[in-house]
Design a protein around this nucleic acid. Structure first.
Lengths: 214, 214
DNA sequence: CACGATTTGGACTGCCTAGTCCAGCATAGT
DNA sequence: ACTATGCTGGACTAGGCAGTCCAAATCGTG
């Protein structure tokens, strides 16, 4: 008999995701959430309880819609260095979008909350662990062909994980530079597992600085 | 004849640096600055004019006292891959400090302000350009011995730059992991320019995860 | 058609923010 | 010791914040 809600939590999460992505957690006011969801304060609080809960839902939505499709292929059982390289080439491609300067909601959130909000640290750590595991898995997929040792794989996976965080930070002030770095990383991965013909990466991938260097 | 100031701007910058480093720019209230400097509001505003100016001074102080001594050896004319590797080993060592979870004031600021505060983007970009140039220079110093191509040097310098940002982000939620990654990067650099005897890096440097992986 | 549970809008609270302002204090030079 | 200069403390302003609360609108059901 009661009146039914005119929206779903999922819709709210999608809308909220955009604002948090654009402005960060602290930078987003509840008023902003009202505006973007079209809901009033009470509905918002009835649905989620706190601003933080809205954020958690938005971040979850982001992981599903953005991170999953990019990291999935790297985690696939058949994945090899090709998939790891493709991950970075995919980022380079994405960084051409004009709105790429928002960066990555997950990494932005890590930068904003990790070490400051204790309840967020596990999220940060499990994300980086997932990345590392994915890269490690992909490099192992090519170990037979390239003769990489376990240690070398572990080292390189660590490096790729740190690099991923780095380029997503960089893209916020220098999208062209970040894209260039992604291509460089992809080339380097390719060089780790040389293709049948040719030992050097494809040409035309050197850095084109977006502004003056140094 | 007038009363003289009982402090110097430099002292203020040093004190302010600590708070901004710990809590970030937005997270630091002017009240916090009063407390840590021991000055009252009016003195603070008389000396600097705005909170942002205090921050700029603090960041400048940080660059001089923290970044300069770490990046300097990598920029030295005689620098080679050894110095690049030493840079990362130095970070690994630093990450053992209990207060390393503050991260790096410069990189924290990039994470907080880049792409949001237009006046900060040049600072971010010139910092990453400086890092990249330093790594590139150091790798060139070893190019003769290792036969690295220009392209390969550029790629690897890009990667090390991104990795540097990445580990400084990571250290805030997982210091042990970040230190481990730094050692991995240093080992990888060492492997790029093999030492006279032995082609593989020293043992005992594999990852010891600080909590459960994945 | 009327009931009544649920959602909704918007006013409101209490707190925190950066920055302003002025009266009074401390001191260097006379 | 006096005075003039400019530093210093703390009250104050105006605005933004997350979260609360209640009256009124809304719609499925009996």
């Amino acid at each position: 008999m009661p009146r039914r809600r005119s929206y779903t939590d999922a819709d709210l999460a999608v809308a909220a995701k955009q604002v948090f992505w654009e402005r960060g957690y602290e930078g987003t006011a509840v008023d902003d959430l009202q505006e973007v969801t079209g809901l009033s304060r009470s509905s918002l609080y009835l649905a989620f309880g706190t601003k933080r809960a809205v954020f958690d839902a938005a971040l979850g939505e982001y992981v599903m819609s953005f991170i999953e499709p990019r990291i999935g292929p790297v985690e696939a059982p058949t994945a090899g260095p090709r998939e790891a390289a493709a991950f970075f080439r995919g980022l380079a491609q994405y960084f051409r979008r004009p709105d790429a300067d928002r960066g990555c909601l997950m990494i932005n959130s890590i930068a904003e909350l990790a070490g400051r909000d204790p309840s967020f640290s596990p999220v940060a750590e499990s994300f980086t662990n997932r990345l590392r595991a994915a890269f490690s898995h992909a490099l192992e997929g090519g170990a037979a062909a390239t003769g990489m040792t376990r240690k070398q794989i572990a080292r390189r996976a660590d490096m790729l994980t740190a690099s991923t965080l780095g380029v997503w930070l960089t893209v916020r002030s220098d999208a062209a530079g970040a894209a260039s770095t992604c291509r460089a990383i992809a080339d380097e991965i390719t060089a780790w597992s040389p293709s049948p013909q040719g030992s050097e990466a494809s040409p035309g991938t050197s850095r084109k600085p977006s502004r003056r260097e140094r």
